[in-house]
């Protein structure tokens, strides 16, 4: 992979269109290598044709987000789980 990537912080705005909680601070677990860490630490490529978040450990795709006219597609097949911290 090249060094031409951003990180998961750049997903905050696009994901905030979909979710009411900040997903970038959530802990995701990579389905490929099992590494767990904040979504903010993913290596992110894009923004065209869509945003692709790759695991900083193994560089496999964790999530993809494509925003089209009138809809958004979120592909989370590379994420085993998402742990979101919530206030009691």
């Amino acid at each position: 992979m090249t060094a031409d990537h951003l990180d998961g912080n750049a997903l905050a705005g696009p994901l905030a269109e979909l979710f009411a909680v900040d997903v970038t601070a959530a802990t995701g677990r990579c389905a490929s290598c099992g590494l767990a860490g904040p979504i903010a630490a993913l290596h992110v490529y894009g923004p065209e044709p869509g945003l692709v978040g790759r695991c900083p450990g193994c560089e496999e795709v964790v999530l993809r987000l494509v925003r089209g006219p009138g809809s958004a597609w979120l592909d989370l097949r590379g994420a085993l789980s998402l742990r979101v911290t919530l206030p009691e």
Partner: peptide
């Protein structure tokens, strides 16, 4: 403008 966003950094 859209935000504020980002809760990690």
């Amino acid at each position: 403008l859209r935000g504020p966003v980002g809760g990690w950094f």
